[in-house]
């Protein structure tokens, strides 16, 4: 499998107000391979956004190495590497640069000097990928949060990125907007094999991931497949993360002395386990 991004013992500190420094990321290492979906979870201030900024060269590590597409990020290759990474941030309003949907989607294309003739089909194509092709001339204040985030994703897709980073892209949305966005990204991943790093508070979103990185106070606390992570339910709850409903219920059932096997992350899995649990005996 081809490596897309790797962090190798990366640390970073911000300057604190008192003149000292604050470790925001402390000795973090992991690798992201082509076509994977990685979820990074952690409580507020655990260093998730700092990680994202390190990945896209808004910050440079104090120690360790950040490699993107097998190249170490530096000032010279920064812009070239960025043109292959799409990133969507939390606040739908604050990342909408253009005056209309199509202007916003074209923004990165303009910046990268893509000729006009190529821009038009790319804008249409990427809006179609996020089901927003009917909104070309809409202005941002007439769109819902979920629609704005999908436009932001289209803006990233227009550059045909190899990697899409979502930094809590769904956390300011209502449940419907959140579902729209997650569904779009999931579809993209299925159809185009896009590599996705999604930073989130939401453990339901984690279920879609191939691999999960749990951050706690700047350190990588756990990493593994979602089911492996949810096996550490107590630890996750102790750092303030909410387990998905099915996982919580499954744990409570077990604590109540009901014999069920394995971990259950979706309601369907749990229901299946419950109604078949007495057959095997």
């Amino acid at each position: 499998m081809k490596e897309i991004l790797s962090l190798d013992h990366v640390s970073f500190s911000y300057e604190a107000e008192d003149g000292g420094t604050r470790r925001a990321v402390d000795d973090v290492s992991f690798t992201v391979n082509d076509g994977e979906w990685i979820a990074i979870v952690g409580h507020n201030g655990s260093g998730k956004s700092t990680l994202a900024k390190l990945m896209i060269g808004l910050l440079f590590p104090e120690e360790g190495k950040v490699k993107v597409f097998l190249e170490e990020l530096n000032v010279d290759n920064l812009w070239e590497i960025r043109s292959d990474i799409g990133i969507v941030f939390q606040n739908p309003d604050n990342q909408f640069v253009g005056s209309t949907v199509q202007d916003d989607v074209a923004f990165a294309l303009e910046n990268n000097g893509i000729p006009f003739e190529e821009m038009v089909p790319r804008v249409h194509e990427s809006l179609a990928q996020v089901n927003m092709e009917g909104f070309l001339d809409h202005e941002p204040h007439h769109l819902s949060g979920g629609q704005k985030q999908r436009v932001a994703i289209a803006g990233a897709l227009a550059m045909r990125p190899k990697l899409l980073i979502l930094d809590e892209a769904t956390s300011m949305l209502d449940p419907q907007g959140r579902d729209e966005v997650i569904q779009v990204v999931d579809e993209l991943k299925q159809t185009t094999g896009l590599t996705v790093i999604s930073i989130t508070h939401d453990l339901e979103e984690v279920l879609l991931a191939d691999k999960v990185v749990v951050m706690n106070s700047g350190k990588m606390m756990l990493t593994g497949k979602p089911e492996e992570i949810f096996a550490h339910g107590d630890e996750l709850e102790s750092i303030g993360l909410d387990l998905p409903f099915a996982a919580r219920l499954s744990r409570s059932l077990r604590q109540a002395g009901i014999a069920i096997q394995g971990e259950h992350m979706t309601e369907e899995e749990l229901v299946n386990e419950l109604w078949t649990s007495h057959f095997s005996k």
Binding site: I56, W79, I87, F89, A108, L109, P115, F116, A156
Partner: peptide, 19 residues
């Protein structure tokens, strides 16, 4: 907004095309 513009490759008017 400044961060969003920077990560989308905004480096000033030089070498920019127009939509």
């Amino acid at each position: 907004l400044a961060i969003a513009m920077e990560v989308r490759g905004y480096r000033g008017g030089e070498g920019r095309t127009r939509y």
